[in-house]
Amino acid sequence: MFKEFTIIPSVRNLKNFDSALASISKVILLSEVHVGSLRSLVKRCHDNDKIALVNMDLVGGLATDKIGIKLLKNLFRVNGIISSNSINVNMAKMTALYAIQRFFLIDSRGFDSGLRALENTRSDAIEVLPGPLATRFKEKITKVRNVPLLGGGFITDKCTVSEIYKSGFMGLTTSKKDLWNDYGYLKQNK
């Protein structure tokens, strides 16, 4: 999924969904969605040749268990999930969904605990939050789990996007619409 740097539109408000569909990204993250609208949103993603990811921890009306994950794949046809829960990530992988582990930088104790959790996860990628701090921890995270890294959270300007890009991350998630389509400055500043 991450062969080149990708800015993933994170749709927190459905009024921005059409803008996400029109973006140049091949991936859309449905960050906050209700199970009642999920099927039609995923279908619209697929109709527009987009990969549909959901933040499993924020899907309203869906249990975050094995049955919920199977529903995401078989009924709602999502392509993958993002979750801070390692169990959900591993269950998603067993169900043949693309799985991204969310990794929060809170404090040193939480960081060490997160690294231990990464040793047992089968994630395809890791989203490191908050984005402005993510690049400082790249080497330590990739020593434990060497998969594509994404920045996420508090990514609101081109400078932060550029820093994440320059550091070798494979992408980022952002709800800031202004950043969804403008990649030109990245190539010039590498």
Results as ranks from 00 to 15, higher is better:
L97T: 02
K140Y: 01
F169M: 13
M56F: 11
F103N: 00
L105F: 06
K177I: 15
T6D: 03
K143S: 14
T173E: 11
I141Y: 04
F76R: 08
D107I: 01
T160Y: 04
P132C: 07
E163T: 13
L72H: 02
L38A: 05
I51M: 13
A125H: 00
T95L: 03
G153C: 03
I51G: 03
V27S: 03
R77N: 13
G36A: 12
P9R: 06
S19F: 10
I24N: 15
L30K: 04
L41A: 09
S10D: 11
Y183F: 09
S83C: 03
F154Y: 15
P132Y: 02
F154G: 06
A99C: 01
I126E: 01
Q101W: 06
E119Q: 13
N120K: 10
L62T: 05
V128M: 04
D157K: 14
Y98Q: 08
G131E: 05
L14I: 15
I7R: 02
V78R: 03
V54I: 06
V33I: 15
L30S: 08
E32W: 06
S86H: 09
D65E: 11
R116C: 06
V33K: 05
L133C: 12
L21Y: 10
V89A: 07
G60W: 09
H46F: 07
T95W: 00
M56R: 04
I141K: 08
K187C: 06
K66Q: 11
Y98S: 03
G171C: 01
T6Q: 12
K187N: 12
N16C: 07
S40H: 12
L30N: 09
D65L: 02
V42R: 00
R12I: 13
I87P: 00
K70C: 05
L14M: 14
L133P: 01
L129T: 04
G168C: 04
L14V: 11
L21S: 11
